[in-house]
Amino acid sequence: MSKFRKKSPWILHYNTGGCNGCDIEILAALGPKFDIERFGMLNRGNPKQSDILLVTGPVTLKCRDVLRRLYLEMPEPKVVVAMGACTFGGGVFRDFYHVENGVNNILPVDVWIPGCTPRVEALIDGMIKALDVWEKKSKDKEYLNNHSEELLKEIGAIND
């Protein structure tokens, strides 16, 4: 069954406060010219039915917990793809007062797509890499970085 997995990745795209450059590239990828639906990819907008979490932006403090919750709501096997320079260390937003300096210490990222902003080709390439990672993953539960009961309680994932 898992060999069909590669053919139907559904994407959850979340912008954690970036400049929207990456998001426009993602929209371009959905459009007629690049059409990532060729690979069966759909932008679902719903973590419960998604397989790939596509994160852009440097993670502002406000949306840090939202990102964590969205990640927790996704069923395994799942892949996290971080797109753009600011997801890795904050990019141009590095060390600003309101950012978390990238996704590194929040989620276990599987694939990084470099560039500011990355080209659509790079995005598609990254997604295909993500599929390879995804194929090898199992159904075991995956955790947040620095996972602990206190953290879950703090973000309201245990008792909402």
């Binding site: 949306c63 917990d65 939202v66 919750r69 927790l72 709501e73």
Partner: peptide, 12 residues
């Protein structure tokens, strides 16, 4: 079957 919280755009 694990129980997760309902989707609410990740907000509480």
């Amino acid at each position: 079957v694990e129980q997760v919280h309902p989707y609410n755009c990740g907000e509480i």
